[in-house]
Design a protein around this nucleic acid. Structure first.
Lengths: 266, 266
DNA sequence: CGGTTGCTTGAGATCCATCAATAGGAGTGG
DNA sequence: CCACTCCTATTGATGGATCTCAAGCAACCG
C-alpha cells in the first residue's frame, strides 16, 4: 500500500510546479483568475492526513466543514441493515464531499480513506461567498457541482441497466476519464488502489463475479492490471463495449452557452 | 389517465388557498419570508403545459431554463445503446430539473411527462441572485439541493444492495415520504401513475418480476394498489422491511446547526 | 516461517430475465 | 350494445446470470 501519484509532496501551496487537482478541475469549468486561485488556496484551512482504511467522517456525524480530497482516494459508503456495504461513490483528488455551498445537517454515509489521504477543510459559507464575489469562480464551482450530479446519475444508470462485465468496464472508463482530468493518467496507465471486493461493493456484484468479469476484460485485451496499476489499452473499444459516454460534453462546448451566467474571460 | 391531485387549477399564482409545492418544500429547509415567497413566484416565468407521454426536454438539448415541475409527475430517463430504458429519477411537484444555480451545457437525459404536467421556467442566474440576496431563501434552496443529492445517493444504494422486493418496497416508501412533504398523501393514500413497466425501468428489474414483487408486498398487507391509487397500510413495517431510512434527518435537526451558514430568522 | 490479505477456481443454488400466453379494462367505432 | 384494439396486469415455464460456499494459491509482513 504505497504507490500514489498524488503524494504528500504533491500539494504546492506555494510553488506552481504542479497544479492542485481541485484547481485543475475547476479551471475546466471556467478560466480562473489568479485572484480566484489565491482565494481558493486561502480558503483551504488546515489539511488533515489520514491513513489507509481510516474513517474520515462517520455515518451520523454532524459535519462542520466541507472536505476537499487533495490527494489519495476515498469511498463514500454505507452499511445496510443486512450487513452489506454499498460504496456510493469514489472520491478522487480534487473532489468535494458535498455541494460547495452548504453542509447537510447530518451525513448518511461514512467516508473511508482507501489510500493515505490529504484532506483540506473548507468553510462552505466562505466558499459560497467567494463564488458570489467572483463570476468566474462561481461558474467553475457550479460547473463542478453539475458534473458531480451527472456522475451520480451515471452510476444509477450503470447499476440499473448494465450487466456485470459492462459495469466493470464502465468503472474503468470512468476512472480513466476522471483521473485524466486531474493529470493522473500517463500513457493509459493509472494507480488503481481498489480491491476486487471494493469494486464488488461499488457495482453491486459479488467479489467472485468481479474477478471473472475482469478476466474476461483482460482476455479481450482492452485492459490490464498489475500491482495496483491499471492500464487501459483501447479506451475507445472499452467505452463502447461498456456503454460509457464521455463526460466531455459536460465541459467542452460550454464557453459560449453559459457566458450569460457568469462573465468568462479570455 | 386522469386523476391527479395536483391539477391545473392547483397553481395559485394569485391566491393563497393552496400552497405551491415548491414553496412547501423550500420552507422545510428554512423559514421563508413573505418577500422570499413573492420573489420565487415572480421568478417563475411562463408556465408550460405538457400532456401525458410528452417529452419536456430531449436528450442532447441545450437547456435555456431551469424547469420546475409545478404539478404532475415526470421521469428523467435515458435510453441505452442496447435499447433498454433507465429511469434515473422521478420528478414530483416542487422538483427542479437541475441544481438551482446553474444549467448544464447539454442534458444527457430526456424528461418525459408521466401525467399531464405544468412546468415553470426559471432563469438560474436570477434564482441564484435571489439566493444570494436573501439568507433564508439561500438556505432553503441549498437545503433542497442537498436533499436531491441525498436522494440520488439513495437510489444508488437501493440499486446496488437491495433485492427486488426490497427495491419495490423502498420505492413506495420514498414516494410516500416525498409526497407527504408536499401534502399529496391523505390517510396513507396517494396517486400512483407509474405502470409496472415504469417501475421495472426505474429499479432495474423486469416487468414480470415487478409484478410478482408487488403481489408479495400486497400479500403481507403492507401495501395495496388499485386504479392508480396506492395505499400504504403500515409504513413502519414497509420501511424496515425494505431498509428505507427516513429523510427527516435531513431536515429536522437543522435549525441550530446551520445558523452559522445563513442568518435564519425566528 | 505462520498469518493475513487479495486473487483465483469450481460446483451447486438462487434470483431474476425471458418467452409466451391469457385476462381485464378503457377507449373507439360500427 | 357489441366487436375491436390497445395497454396493463397477470401467470406459467424455462434458461441464464450471478451468488454462495468452499478451497487453493500467491504475495506480503511481522
Amino acid at each position: 500500500m504505497e504507490t500514489q501519484s498524488a503524494r504528500a509532496d504533491a500539494m504546492p501551496n506555494t510553488g506552481h510546479i504542479r497544479r492542485d487537482a481541485f484547481l485543475l478541475k475547476l479551471s475546466q469549468g471556467a478560466a480562473l483568475t489568479a485572484d480566484d486561485e489565491r482565494m481558493i488556496c486561502r480558503l483551504i484551512g488546515n489539511t488533515r492526513h489520514y491513513q489507509t482504511g481510516q474513517t474520515i467522517i462517520a455515518d451520523g456525524d454532524v459535519p462542520r466543514h466541507l472536505i476537499l480530497i487533495q490527494s489519495g482516494w476515498a469511498y463514500r459508503q454505507r452499511y445496510m441493515a443486512n450487513g452489506k456495504r454499498q460504496i456510493v461513490s469514489v472520491l478522487l483528488p480534487g473532489d468535494l464531499t458535498e455541494p460547495f455551498g452548504a453542509l447537510p445537517p447530518m451525513v448518511m454515509y461514512s467516508l473511508r480513506a482507501v489510500t493515505p489521504v490529504e484532506a483540506g477543510l473548507i468553510d462552505p459559507a466562505q466558499l459560497r461567498a467567494a463564488a458570489e464575489a467572483s463570476p468566474s469562480l462561481g461558474q467553475a464551482l457550479w460547473q463542478d457541482l453539475l458534473v458531480s450530479a451527472a456522475d451520480a446519475h451515471d452510476r444509477v444508470v450503470t447499476l440499473g441497466s448494465l450487466d456485470a462485465v459492462e459495469r466493470v468496464g464502465h468503472l474503468f472508463c470512468e476512472l480513466h476519464s476522471r483521473l485524466s482530468a486531474i493529470g493522473l493518467v500517463k500513457a493509459g496507465e493509472f494507480e488503481m488502489p481498489m480491491t476486487q471486493a471494493d469494486i464488488a461493493d461499488l457495482l453491486g456484484l459479488s467479489t467472485v463475479h468481479v474477478n471473472r468479469c475482469m478476466q474476461e476484460l483482460r482476455a479481450t485485451g482492452m485492459l490490464s492490471l498489475s500491482r495496483g496499476c491499471a492500464k487501459v489499452h483501447d479506451i475507445e473499444a472499452l467505452a463502447s463495449a461498456s456503454m460509457f459516454e464521455s463526460r466531455d460534453h459536460y465541459l467542452k462546448p460550454h464557453a459560449e452557452v453559459t457566458l450569460s451566467t457568469g462573465a468568462l474571460r479570455r
